[in-house]
């Protein structure tokens, strides 16, 4: 049997649009993942603390408010400061394509926008685990 893959699904910032995060969480549970859902309105510090304590294989961040250019690099910076470099970080929500390169630069491995199939995300995670 394959080992269980643990994920954190988090919503950084103030936006309350958790439909996507919840649908993804359920979908990934049904794909056999263990999904830790941390709820709304998470600061970068909250998220990094969750990562430290839960030690997941991947961190999925959903943002629809446009705050991603500030919040995602801040999260990556804090992860780095804690010497956490072996987890896969993914973005989702409403993030324009032109912002992808800058996010990739700081370590957000991929961004999944509206209309992504859950299966695609599941496959991507399994294929790109860092440990």
């Amino acid at each position: 049997m394959d080992r269980k893959i643990r994920l954190i699904v988090a919503k950084p910032g103030l936006d309350g649009h958790d439909r996507g995060a919840k649908v993804i969480s359920r979908g990934l549970r049904d794909a056999g993942f263990e999904v830790i859902y941390t709820g709304l309105h998470q600061t970068p510090e909250d998220i990094v603390q969750s990562v430290i304590q839960e030690d997941p294989d991947a961190l999925l961040l959903s943002i629809l408010s446009g705050a991603h250019p500030v919040l995602l690099p801040e999260i990556m910076k804090q992860l780095k400061a804690n010497e956490i470099d072996d987890i896969l970080v993914l973005g989702g929500g409403i993030i324009p394509e032109e912002d992808f390169p800058a996010l990739k630069e700081v370590g957000v491995e991929a961004v999944f926008g509206p209309g992504t199939k859950i299966q695609e995300i599941a496959d991507f995670i399994r294929a790109n685990l860092k440990r």
Partner: peptide, 18 residues
């Protein structure tokens, strides 16, 4: 059925987890 799980307890611990 799926072997997966949703673990949601952190939400209620929000006050403390930092």
């Amino acid at each position: 059925f799926t072997g997966g799980a949703i673990l949601g307890d952190r939400i209620r611990m929000k006050k403390n987890f930092t």
